[in-house]
Each structure stands twice: as structure tokens, then as C-alpha cells.
Design a protein around this nucleic acid. Structure first.
Length: 293
DNA sequence: TAACGGACCTGAAGGC
DNA sequence: TGCCTTCAGGTCCGTT
């Protein structure tokens, strides 16, 4: 599922095809994804040079020369592929399992360098929206997002402050994009395992009575950074519908310590536990009850 | 205000 | 083999 590392991998893949080039033609093959397209969606994209391609949490942000920003979210199953003039996807040959199935190719950008950037999203949980860069502070999807976990501002003190007084579980708190932006179910499970913290533990326990970060907050902050860095280095994970730009699989799923490893041995050195699964806030949680406290 | 759960959506996997 | 059911999960929104 596209969480921060997958979105960052997509961004790095799209950059050579889009940044600095003009969108000669934009096509929306249907009226909506998760939300209806704006009526002027195509018009505001056509002829615009993409001056930069950034990321905020799980959102991709394409800056346009007009001063607009194209906001893109991959939802659950969204993916991009880039097809060059020669017909080959870059980098490498495109080999998505459903590469012949164009049914879910919902948006196409024809770039001035000859590349076709195609957004495919079978479940249509993704969406695209255009807003003025000047109004970015008022953009509802970005407003209220917590700190970037890989940014300089994110540290144990900030995480502890965001969790102080919260009676909900650590798992639920970390999935809350207002607390920290970009984590999803997989990386929350993995980060909690690395920090040896139970997903059931109260979020408030990251702060002491004075609101200062506890040792748990320090461990968790480090674990979040580490797991995200490792995943980006591996090109993201590739569960089910998610693929890289090239159609290739990411490799991080091979490194999962707990996610989707129910009944397998815990990988913590010296731990005799097995990975368990339970449903928490409507989502599967994987953890080791022996070494995660 | 915080916390929680349902809805959205469709392909994959499992059961019969 | 084919049909049916369940599950997956990011975000929004309604309810408690």
C-alpha cells in the first residue's frame, strides 16, 4: 500500500519524466476518482510546465508555472507508469501484471519530452486536485498534517507532545496523520516492533508527567526514521496492487519483521515469541507480545 | 473535543 | 470450474 516510502519512490520515478517539461495534453478518462474532477481540471493543466515535483506525507505535489499546484494521492491501489516515445516504460521495461488492462488508466499526461505519464487506480481511492500555491495553507487535505517523520523538525519531544494526554493506543495515534504524517498500517507495525513497544500501549505513555519525552518516545522516533529510510532505500514495498514507476516490485516487503508474518517466529534476537495478528481500530495489527511491551 | 467505526471500491484469495 | 464471501486499507464523515 502506498505509504510515505512508496510515494517517495513514485516521486523519484516521475521526476525525470515530468520536472521541467510541459504538459502538452491532459486526459481524464472518467469524471471522478475518489472525488469528482474539478470542471477546469484539464484546462488548468494543459500547456503548463511542471516546475517541481514534491511530496508532503502521502501526497504528491506538482508545481506548475501558472502558480497552481497539482495535488495527487495514490489512495490504496493507485500507481503511475511512464511510457517513452519508443513505447518502453522507464526505467526498464514495464511489466505490470495488468499491463494489458487499460480499464483503470484514469488520467494521462502527455509531456513535451514525449513521455506519457499514466495514472492507473483500480479501486479509485486515489484523487487529484488543483489549487493555487498561494492558498496552500488553506488546502483542506494538507491543513493539519503533522510533521514529516524524515524532516528535521520531527523528534522525540515533538512526538511526545503530540501524544501527551491521548488515551488512544500507540497504533491508532501513529496512524493519525495529525500526529505524524505519512505512516500507514505497515510501517506503524514495523516501527513499533523495532522500538519494542506494544501497539496496545497508551499513546500518552510517550510523555512523562511534565510532558517531556520518555525513553519510549526516543526509541520510537528513531525506529520510525530507520524503517522509512530502509524502505525508501529498498524502493518501497509492493504489496498487492502497488508497483514502482517501472512496474518493478519494491523489495522492502522481504524485510518485514512482523507485517503479514502471523504465526512466524519473532525476528528480535533472543526472543522466543511468535508474531500475532489482531484487529485494532478496524485494521490488522501484527506484533510480538513477548518483546513488545 | 476525542475516539471510534462505517462507507467507499474492487481485485485477490479462500471456501464450498 | 465457478460462484460466493471475506479481506485489504487511506481518508472522510457521522455517531457516541
Amino acid at each position: 500500500m502506498p505509504e510515505l516510502p512508496e510515494v517517495e519512490t513514485v516521486r523519484l520515478g516521475l521526476q525525470p519524466a515530468m520536472e521541467g517539461f510541459r504538459i502538452e495534453r491532459a486526459v481524464a478518462n472518467r469524471g471522478d476518482l475518489r472525488f469528482p474532477f474539478q470542471t477546469d481540471f484539464v484546462a488548468r493543466l494543459t500547456g503548463q510546465i511542471v516546475t517541481g515535483l514534491g511530496r508532503r506525507a502521502k501526497y504528491l505535489l506538482a508545481d506548475l508555472a501558472s502558480g497552481d499546484v497539482l495535488l495527487m494521492h495514490l489512495g490504496m491501489s493507485g500507481s503511475f507508469r511512464v511510457v517513452t516515445e519508443s513505447g518502453a516504460a522507464t526505467p526498464g521495461e514495464f511489466h505490470h501484471p495488468r499491463s494489458e488492462d487499460r480499464t483503470h488508466d484514469h488520467v494521462v499526461f502527455e509531456m513535451s519530452n514525449g513521455a506519457r505519464v499514466i495514472f492507473n487506480d483500480p479501486r479509485r481511492f486515489g484523487f487529484m486536485k488543483i489549487f493555487a500555491r498561494a492558498a496552500i495553507d488553506d488546502e483542506p487535505h494538507l491543513k493539519g498534517l503533522g510533521p514529516e517523520p524524515l524532516g528535521n523538525a520531527f523528534d522525540a519531544a515533538l512526538l511526545a507532545k503530540a501524544c501527551a494526554g491521548k488515551q488512544t493506543s500507540l497504533k491508532a495515534a501513529l496512524l493519525d496523520q495529525r500526529v505524524v504524517a505519512g505512516l500507514g498500517n505497515i510501517y506503524v507495525c514495523e516501527a513499533l516492533w523495532r522500538a519494542h513497544l506494544s501497539p496496545k500501549r497508551k499513546a500518552a505513555s510517550l510523555a512523562d508527567r511534565k510532558g517531556a519525552p520518555t525513553d519510549r518516545a526516543l526509541r520510537l522516533t528513531e525506529s520510525i526514521r530507520d524503517v522509512l529510510h530502509d524502505a525508501i532505500k529498498a524502493g518501497g514495498s509492493s504489496l498487492r496492487d502497488h508497483r514502482q514507476i517501472s512496474g518493478e516490485l519494491g523489495y522492502f516487503q522481504h524485510s518485514f519483521a512482523v507485517y503479514d508474518r502471523e504465526d512466524e517466529r519473532c525476528r528480535t534476537e533472543g526472543c522466543t515469541g511468535t508474531v500475532k495478528r489482531f484487529v485494532q481500530n478496524g485494521r490488522s495489527t501484527f506484533w510480538c507480545s513477548v518483546c513488545q511491551k
